[in-house]
């Protein structure tokens, strides 16, 4: 019988895949995509908690909606930053973005 815990476990695995992507990928766009995976797993948790634990109002769905809005803004600005930095350094490899390192 599939219940609340299975949703939490699935979201955990999704988040772990996102962590792996963020830590191991060299392409900046791939890192952004992994961050999207992590945000999706958090949204899944919000909706599951709303479905199984806090059932009298839809506040979990509201939080998930606001996370989606912030994620859309984050992706737009992040991709614009990547395009802008690509124009200067001719690369999207995160190892080349060490301008601010000392």
């Amino acid at each position: 019988m599939i219940g609340f815990q299975h949703y939490l476990l699935l979201a955990t695995v999704l988040f772990a895949v996102g962590i792996y992507g963020v830590l191991s990928k060299r392409n900046a766009v791939a890192v952004l995509m992994s961050v999207e995976l992590m945000l999706n797993s958090v949204n899944l948790n919000f909706v599951a908690i709303n479905r199984y634990l806090v059932t009298d109002h839809a506040v979990g769905q509201l939080f998930a909606l606001i996370v989606i809005v912030v994620a859309a803004a984050e992706v737009a600005v992040g991709l614009a930053l990547i395009i802008s930095i690509f124009r200067q350094r001719k690369s999207v490899n995160l190892n080349d973005f060490n301008l601010l390192k000392w």
């Binding site: 609340f4 939490l8 695995v13 191991s24 634990l53 059932t55």
Partner: peptide, 27 residues
């Protein structure tokens, strides 16, 4: 390193979820 950290994270959180008891009923 990334794979190790991700596996550790999934293991710890998964164990915590397995050990927790949730007393909710589906709406």
């Amino acid at each position: 390193w990334g794979g190790l950290i991700a596996l550790l994270f999934a293991g710890i959180i998964g164990f915590a979820i397995r050990e927790s008891r949730f007393t909710g009923q589906a709406g």
